[in-house]
Design a protein around this nucleic acid. Sequence first.
DNA 1: ACCCAGGTGGCCC
DNA 2: GGGCCACATGGG
Length: 229
Amino acid sequence: MAARACGCVKDSLTYYMMYKMLRNRFGYLDWWPGETNDEIIIGAILTQQTSWKNVERALANLKESHAVNLKKIGRMNLKKLENLLKPSGFYHQKARRLKAISKYIYNNYISLDELLSKDRVSLRKELLSLDGVGKETADSIILYAAEKPAFVVDAYARRILNRVYGIDTDIEYDKLCVMIEGAIKRDLGLYKDFHAQLVELGKRHCRLKPVCKGCPINEHCAYFISLTK
DNA sequence: ACCCAGGTGGCCC
DNA sequence: GGGCCACATGGG
């Protein structure tokens, strides 16, 4: 069904089958763990190289201070913000970056929604110009806050695609994006749910170490095979 | 006492 | 364009 131990998989069927297997197993998810656009963006920054459990603690601290809100974060005392973010790690830079992002938004727009309403391509460009917003964070914000179809490539996606189809884990971000986006229908619901499914699977198997190159067949692959039965 | 987590940016060659 | 490094807390 799929090319193994090769750098790429362009076959649409491969991705649809993977999605279908996951979808059968976990059900439709259509998710980002956050109620508001502010919470989605804050969560996207906080989760960088950080377990979601620790992000939840920081978000709980913000909620307690009624500060799951970029406008408030922009005006909050830096030391106080750092303290609330502490459990999520890298809290000096995360606090500084969130404040800078807030200031950027409200110096240049009436509201967050005004920024998010820009077209997908220019929004991505603009988000990427912000300190602390890289490709994955930008695409998460575009997909779940702006609700425009940008496929999010995260560590889970990389690991799973590596283990099941042998795609190099260190393949360039945009290359993997283009590969997947070229293979499946550009559809908001599909992009959201596919990413959610990969995270769901990844979380259940996150303790697995990276597999050596050229040796993609391992537990994940066995797990996928078990899903098809 | 390690190694890892839903990255990003800076610096060096 | 690649290869390191710092950033920091909490869990296995």
